[in-house]
Amino acid sequence: MGFSFIFEYYPYYITGTKNTIILAAFTVFFGVILGVLLALMKLSKIGPLRYIATAYIEFIRGTPLLVQISIIFYGLSYVGISFPEVPAFGDDFPRFMAGVTALSINSSAYVAEIIRSGIQAIDKGQMEAARSIGMPHRMAMQYIILPQAIKNILPALGNEFVVVIKESSIVMVIGISELMYNADVVRGTTFNPFGPLLFAALIYFVLTFTTSKLLGVAERRMRAGD
């Protein structure tokens, strides 16, 4: 096997890691925004909003990410919807956007379920008690339900971040030069099928391990308030 390829090809890993981090960061950002929206829709009193959110979540969770990415990247451009080219962001921008879109759409369904279950895990007596002193629904949510739900939601959300970092490797199939793609390029060039991938795995592990440790620290800080 041998790891001497690193000296020559390390720039691939640096760009790859950078792109993986950017990809994951944007996915988490849009995934959470979309996920909050979906969770609100699913908890809404308005039937149609609830049905749409439920259908969306079920469909996204019930189909493979690889299929979703292919639909977004190949399918959409076939029917005439394409992501714009922005020269300032480089030639890869449309691919990158397709990747972030697909990953965000996918992640948002899981985020929505994390938020919904975090809110619904709060005993319904809490809402009743808040309403019984005269709080309107929105105020009860803001001061009583959400502050408690956050404690259920954050750890699971942190876990979802870790998942996103790992799953983002799948966008290599549409040619985004993230960590997995670049590791594969190195594998192809060096005819070394083991070392380059093992090194990529190590970098993924460092990324996910650091993320979950950081989240663990944040979580413990929060629990200290109890």
């Binding site: 005993d123 007596g125 008690a129 019984s132 002193i133 005269g134 009583i144 408690q148």
Partner: peptide, 29 residues
Amino acid sequence: NKIRQKMGMVFQQFNLFPHLTVMDNITIG
């Protein structure tokens, strides 16, 4: 909401707000 302000309610399961101190439980309303 206005009506409920004039009708206090006490529950079997207390339903205190666990994330707030006793003082805040009483004063938040």
